[in-house]
C-alpha cells in the first residue's frame, strides 16, 4: 500500500488523528491568550480559561444584579422555545404542503409556482416586514424561522413523496384504497423519517435566523446576549455562549437522529424485526 489513496487508518488511529487539529487549536489559543495577557492583563480579546469560568459562573449560577434572573438559563430557554416553535411549525407545514403537492398532481400544479417563488425570497430580507406587521414580540421571530426553513422542508418532502415507487400506489389501489387512505397509510408513514432528515438539515439555517432575529430585536436569548456584550468586547461571555449554542445544535440533531432510529425500524438498512 504505497499510494496515499489506499492508506486507511484503523479506528483508534482515526480517532486520535481527529483530535490532533482540535488540540493544536486549543494550544494555539492558550499560547496566544497567555502572551496577550502577559503584555496587558486587561486585554479582552483572548481571555484565559479562568476568565471563562468566572464569566460562566456569573452568567449561569449567580442571579443578575438588575433582574434577579439567571441570565444564561433564561437566554437558553427563550431561544430554545423560539427555535422549537419555529422549526416545529415549519416541519408540520412543510409535511402537509410537501405530501399534498408530492402526491396529488392537481395540488402540485396549483401550488408549485408559489412554493418556488416563496423559497427564493431571502428570509432576512422580509424581516423588516415581519417586524412592521407582527410587531417586535416573539411572533415575528418564530415566523422568521418558520418562513426561513419551511420552503426547504416542503420541497424536500415533495421530492421524497414523488420518489415513492408508483408500484406501491397502484398496488394500494388494487387493494381498494381511496386517495385519503393512500395518503395516510402508504405515503405519510414512509415520509416521516424523511421529514426528520429534512428537519435535521434545516436546523443550521433555523439557528441562523434565530440569532439574526434576536440580534436585531430582543430582550433575552442567546443571540441577543452575544450581540449585547459585544459592545463591551466581552469575549469571556461570547465564546462560552458560542460553544453552548454549538452543543445545543449538536444535541438537537442527535435527538432527532435517535428518534428516527427508534421509531422507524423498517427504515434501517439491517431491516430489524418489530
Amino acid at each position: 500500500m504505497e499510494r496515499w489513496i489506499n492508506k486507511r487508518p484503523s479506528r483508534a488511529v482515526s480517532g486520535m488523528l481527529g483530535l490532533i487539529p482540535l488540540i493544536i487549536l486549543l494550544l494555539l489559543y492558550m499560547a496566544g491568550s497567555e502572551a496577550r495577557l502577559a503584555e496587558n492583563p486587561a486585554d479582552k480579546l483572548l481571555p484565559s480559561f479562568e476568565q471563562f469560568s468566572q464569566a460562566i459562573e456569573r452568567m449561569a449560577f449567580e442571579p443578575s444584579k438588575r433582574t434577579g434572573e439567571y441570565l444564561f438559563w433564561v437566554d437558553t430557554q427563550s431561544s430554545l422555545i423560539r427555535l422549537g416553535l419555529g422549526v416545529g411549525i415549519a416541519s408540520l407545514l412543510g409535511l402537509v404542503v410537501g405530501v399534498l403537492t408530492g402526491a396529488l398532481p392537481v395540488v402540485r400544479a396549483l401550488f408549485n409556482p408559489l412554493l418556488t417563488v416563496v423559497s427564493l425570497i431571502p428570509p432576512l430580507a422580509i424581516l423588516p416586514i415581519l417586524f412592521i406587521v407582527l410587531g417586535l414580540g416573539e411572533l415575528s421571530k418564530v415566523v422568521l424561522i418558520t418562513i426561513g426553513v419551511m420552503p426547504f422542508i416542503a420541497r424536500d418532502i415533495q421530492r421524497r413523496t414523488q420518489e415513492i415507487p408508483s408500484e406501491q400506489i397502484i398496488k394500494a389501489q388494487t387493494l381498494g384504497a381511496n386517495t385519503s387512505q393512500i395518503l395516510l397509510r402508504i405515503i405519510l408513514p414512509q415520509i416521516m423519517p424523511r421529514l426528520i432528515d429534512a428537519t435535521r438539515l434545516s436546523l443550521g439555517a433555523a439557528w441562523l435566523f434565530l440569532i439574526a432575529a434576536e440580534a436585531i430585536v430582543s430582550t433575552d436569548g442567546l443571540g441577543y446576549r452575544i450581540f449585547l456584550v459585544r459592545r463591551y468586547l466581552a469575549m469571556d461571555v461570547i465564546l462560552p455562549y458560542v460553544a453552548w449554542i454549538t452543543l445545543l445544535a449538536f444535541l438537537s440533531d442527535w435527538v432527532l437522529a435517535k428518534i428516527s432510529y427508534l421509531c422507524f425500524p423498517w427504515d434501517r438498512l439491517d431491516g430489524a424485526e418489530r
Partner: peptide, 23 residues
Amino acid sequence: FPHMTVLDNVMAAPALAQKGITG
C-alpha cells in the same frame, strides 16, 4: 409496503378495502 410488517402488509388488503378515511 416497506413500512409494514409481513402481517400488516397482508392485513392492509382488508383495511384498505373498507370505506373510510384512515384505512
